[in-house]
């Protein structure tokens, strides 16, 4: 296993990804089974039904089958892309998810771009530099890491929507509606990113190659940009799993703060109304997206850093 073949490596990683999705689907199924209360009753709502009618519906929906059979059926439907039907909205979960997906992806991409840009600027300006700017940047990092995203959101709303009336306070769908949510989500992540980036850059600035570049007369800014930044980017790639998770869970909170449509908000409302098929659908879909992107990033990693190919992970 000194030089793992890329195909074999990819196959292994994809297998793990499938395992993760399968695991999350199983967790989702168990969640539905463990939830107290009768799903048929929940589906019927408050409309009074005769006992026979209830039983017929139960039979039609397959709720009277044994557990393992239902598990098999659930997995079978999942493979064909059927995520079930929402209890509350009487709508297929699949169309609910696909309808809201784009809004969340837009938010996540915008926020990620902003956060990355912010972290790069902060780290490049302060890494290995003077004490005061480093301390200020460090305090900013600590503050944004410690402030809950929903509070940043409420603060921005108070100032920019209610005081200055620059942006819509709720539900804006266009670009003006994207600004505050994206900035909020970016702020909740920028601290961690810049902290990691700066530390990695400072570590590489202590390396002999940095010293030799300095000796050749490279200025500090050039040193950071040309030499340290490259090394700093590797831990950022390592962080991509965290980043994705932060984007996804951030979306849940931030879409709620700004009353913005999206997957996160669908999830939040579904949990409050205990609409289990929607919850499990969103969880399975995000687990799948998460697993796939992780594989992609791992592959990217091996391209960025050739040393890894030799290790044969």
């Amino acid at each position: 296993m000194t030089t793992a073949s890329p195909v074999r490596w990819l196959a292994r990683r994809l297998l793990l990804a499938v395992l993760v999705v399968f695991g999350s689907a199983t967790a989702a199924f168990l969640a539905m089974e463990l939830t107290p209360g009768d799903p048929v009753r929940t589906l019927l709502g408050t409309t009074p039904q005769t006992a026979e009618a209830t039983e017929r519906i139960r039979h039609d929906l397959g709720f009277d089958r044994p557990l393992l059979v239902r598990y098999g059926l659930f997995l079978g439907r999942l493979v064909t892309g059927d995520l079930g039907t929402s209890y509350q909205l009487q709508e297929p979960v699949r169309s609910l998810v696909t309808g809201q997906l784009w809004s969340t992806v837009t938010l996540a991409l915008a926020a990620f771009t902003l956060a990355l840009a912010g972290a790069l600027v902060l780290a490049v300006l302060t890494a290995g530099g003077r004490r005061l700017p480093r301390r200020i940047a460090g305090f900013f990092d600590l503050l944004t890491i410690s402030a809950p995203a929903f509070w940043i959101g409420v603060l921005l709303l108070t100032v920019f929507s209610f005081r200055l009336r620059l942006f819509p306070a709720a539900g804006g769908t266009g670009l003006s509606g994207l600004v505050l949510p994206a900035v909020t989500l970016a702020l909740s992540m920028v601290g961690t990113l810049s902290q990691v980036l700066r530390e990695a850059m400072e570590r590489s600035l202590e390396e002999p190659f940095a010293l030799s570049a300095k000796a050749r007369g490279t200025g500090l800014l050039g040193l950071r940009l040309r030499h340290a930044l490259r090394h700093g980017l590797i831990p950022l790639v390592t962080l991509s799993g965290w980043t994705l998770g932060a984007l996804l869970s951030g979306a849940v909170v931030i879409e709620t703060v700004f009353s913005r449509p999206g997957l996160g908000r669908v999830l939040a409302t579904a949990i409050t109304s205990r609409d289990l098929p929607v919850v499990t659908g969103v969880v399975v879909v995000s687990a799948a997206a998460f697993a796939l992107i992780t594989v992609a990033v791992d592959a990217l990693y091996r391209i960025i850093d050739p040393r890894l190919r030799e290790v044969g992970t």
């Binding site: 999350s24 994705l244 849940v252 949990i271 919850v279 687990a287």
Partner: peptide, 24 residues
């Protein structure tokens, strides 16, 4: 292996799933 799978997706999502089951 179970922790592998559990740790492969975001924690808040996991927490939300548990709350969905147990109730708020």
């Amino acid at each position: 292996r179970v922790t592998d799978v559990l740790m492969a997706f975001p924690g808040l999502l996991l927490a939300l799933l548990v709350v969905a089951v147990l109730g708020p």
